[in-house]
């Protein structure tokens, strides 16, 4: 963090790179997205990843990732001890909405999973009023699910609501964040499935689903780049940086080729629709590559932000 801003580094009216959102923010966006998607995959699609002390591993990972994302956000504040003030403007600020949803999700998900806790062969908290399919428990899960969905998309909304940077000012960014988050969460489930702990039929379904999401995600990125290339000169410059400039390696190489195209090819070669158990190496490849790809794509999109000259 430096004093000043990128505009006044040089008193020249020219395009200025944004220097506020950086690598830690990409990690924050990534952790929040994958965390939220893990929970929703478990709650909506029943994608379980085993249990630890009776608690759903998907939920535990989700809690850990969203906590890490929140801690990165707090540590990046100029006044970290005032983090609670970031909850004060939910009417207008997506960061505020997201921060509130982080806390709501963490609080509710901890409560929701507590009744399943096994200690010494018993479940001491099984008698909690929201345990065992009670209405209260279902309501808490629904609210936590809505919070998780917002946690996935709000970083994208923060960027897309920014009128200052033409490349970000599109609804495609939150959609990209949403699609890639679900792809990475499925990737984690596939890695778990490849270890033999999930039934092979599950891996086939998950792989099919992953293939669809990866194709959608690729389309979203292509649409974004094409849209930028045919709009303002500054957005075109951002797209150029991502495709052939200094951000091509992380974005094009890491985010699109390694994170989307290669896993998509792995899914196609694994032929999950054929019926037999998919090849473990291909499943691992498809699952594992979506994770760094997701992170690198976010890093690229963030760093490609450029302010146009305002006059």
């Amino acid at each position: 963090m430096e004093t000043g801003n990128s505009f006044t580094k040089r008193f020249v009216m020219e395009r200025k790179p944004q220097t506020i959102w950086r690598a830690p923010h990409a990690l924050w966006f990534f952790a929040m997205g994958v965390g939220g998607a893990l929970y929703l995959n478990r709650a909506l699609l029943g994608i379980e990843m085993g249990r630890l002390w009776g608690l759903s591993l998907a939920d535990l990972l989700s809690l850990a990732l969203i906590s890490v994302g929140g801690l990165i956000l707090i540590s990046d504040l100029g006044q970290p001890l005032r983090f609670w003030r970031a909850l004060a403007n939910p009417r207008y600020s997506w960061i505020s909405v997201g921060a509130i949803c982080d806390f709501v999700f963490l609080f509710l998900d901890v409560l929701v999973i507590l009744p399943d806790l096994e200690i010494g062969g018993g479940r001491p908290l099984a008698g909690l009023p929201w345990a065992g399919g009670a209405f209260l428990g279902t309501a808490m899960e629904v609210v936590a699910g809505v919070a998780a969905l917002i946690v996935i998309v709000y970083p994208g909304l923060v960027l897309s609501y920014s009128p200052s940077i033409p490349f970000w000012n599109t609804a495609l960014i939150p959609l990209q964040f949403l699609a890639y988050a679900f792809a990475s969460a499925l990737g984690l489930a596939l890695i778990y499935g490849a270890t033999g702990l999930a039934p092979p039929a599950s891996s086939q379904t998950w792989l099919l689903l992953l293939g669809g999401i990866l194709a959608l995600c690729l389309l979203l990125f292509v649409a974004h780049l094409l849209g930028a290339a045919y709009t303002r000169a500054t957005a075109r410059e951002s797209a150029r940086l991502l495709v052939s400039g200094h951000l091509a390696a992380p974005f094009l190489g890491g985010g699109l080729v390694l994170g989307l195209a290669v896993p998509l090819l792995a899914v196609l070669f694994a032929r999950p629709w054929a019926g037999g158990p998919p090849d473990t190496v291909l499943v691992l490849l498809a699952g594992a590559l979506t994770l760094p790809g997701n992170l690198l794509s976010k890093y690229g999109v963030i760093r490609a932000g450029i302010y146009p000259p305002f006059l």
């Binding site: 004093t3 801003n5 006044t8 004060a88 960061i95 200052s164 146009p308 305002f310």
Partner: peptide, 25 residues
């Protein structure tokens, strides 16, 4: 006294009008 230093305002401003005060020097 209310600012938490998120710098979201700086990212949103098209005119570079907001400045972060990082350290006293």
């Amino acid at each position: 006294d209310r600012c938490c230093g998120s710098r979201a305002c700086m990212a949103a401003c098209p005119y570079g009008a907001l400045h972060f005060y990082a350290k006293e020097e």
